[in-house]
């Protein structure tokens, strides 16, 4: 009996060890990808910030406008741009994004422009209208693709297929924390920060400029969100795999203890049997 339980424990240890090897390898891969992803995120930031400032300047110079990009209309349908991962095993990374979308979308019909395989699968399963059926890796998503996506968004918005566009992605705060963010892309709202008076000269006109530049602006926004989301994904995966590896290590230590106990028990029993046999 003792022998069979020893064998079972040994098998168990071996299986946990091989799992640990996988989680460890995934952690290493994530760590090495993280550095690159963070670099890419850093270089994409100036564009988003600078273009936003320039756009907001133009927006605040327009008092009253018929420009559809700035006019809120009755919301019959929303569009969500959802950035999720390529695969799971990243803790709550994908689930948190979907939860945020579902909570936000509650009560309004919506369609989704998914980025990342997990997002496509999720919304396809839910039977939600998807705006594109091609799919691109969020990792290394090119600027060209972002322009294409921004084109889909602005075309749909101007055709009034949907009346509001939201972007849901995970923003990288630090190695340990990633935060899901929901941002309104269109229509652009006037906020306090851009209400200051503007005296700039716009050529040909502020409206004309916004019309031309809006797709570029959205593309830049998407690109930087993707870089941000990918850095979050990798660091979420790194953390998940780190704790998985730690857990596996703990489990192995426990199992070793049990194994040694069983071995000791078996030896003791054998000795008692021999001694008992010799006395007779």
């Amino acid at each position: 009996m003792a022998g069979s339980s020893m064998k079972a424990i040994k098998l168990r240890i071996r299986s946990v060890e091989s799992t640990m090897q996988i989680t460890k390898a995934m952690q290493l891969v994530a760590t090495s990808k993280l550095r690159k992803a963070k670099e890419r995120m850093e270089v994409s930031k100036p564009y988003a910030a600078i273009s936003r400032e320039a756009i907001m300047g133009a927006v605040s110079s327009l008092e009253d406008t018929s420009l559809p990009y700035l006019r809120a209309r009755e919301v019959k349908k929303r569009c969500y741009v959802v950035i999720a991962g390529e695969r799971g095993l990243a803790g709550g990374y994908n689930a948190n994004v979907f939860k945020a979308v579902l909570a936000h979308a509650e009560g309004t019909p919506y369609c989704v422009l998914p980025l990342g395989r997990k997002a496509i699968e999720k919304f396809e399963r839910m039977g939600i209208e998807l705006l594109n059926d091609d799919y691109w890796h969020v990792e290394g998503l090119s600027v060209t693709v972002c322009y294409k996506l921004a084109g889909i968004l602005t075309d749909g918005y101007l055709r009034e297929d949907f009346d509001e566009i939201f972007l849901v992605y995970t923003s990288f705060q630090s190695m340990m924390t990633q935060e899901v963010k929901t941002e309104k892309l269109l229509p652009i709202e006037k906020t306090e920060e851009n209400k200051r008076p503007v005296t700039a000269v716009y050529e040909p006109s502020a409206e004309e400029m916004l019309t031309r530049v809006m797709p570029d602006f959205l593309a830049g926004r998407l690109y930087s969100a993707c870089c941000d989301a990918f850095a979050s994904e990798v660091s979420a995966r790194r953390n998940a795999m780190d704790s998985a590896t730690k857990n596996a290590g703990e489990m192995i230590a426990n199992l070793r203890l049990h194994y040694n106990r069983a071995r000791q028990g078996a030896i003791t029993q054998e000795i008692t049997e021999i001694v008992a046999g010799a006395e007779h």
């Binding site: 600078i50 320039a54 300047g57 700039a200 400029m209 031309r212 570029d216 830049g220």
Partner: peptide
């Protein structure tokens, strides 16, 4: 493409 913005002698070419 993109835009050019001048604000308080700060020039940005996006």
């Amino acid at each position: 493409g993109g835009l050019l913005s001048v604000q308080d002698n700060q020039v940005r070419l996006v």
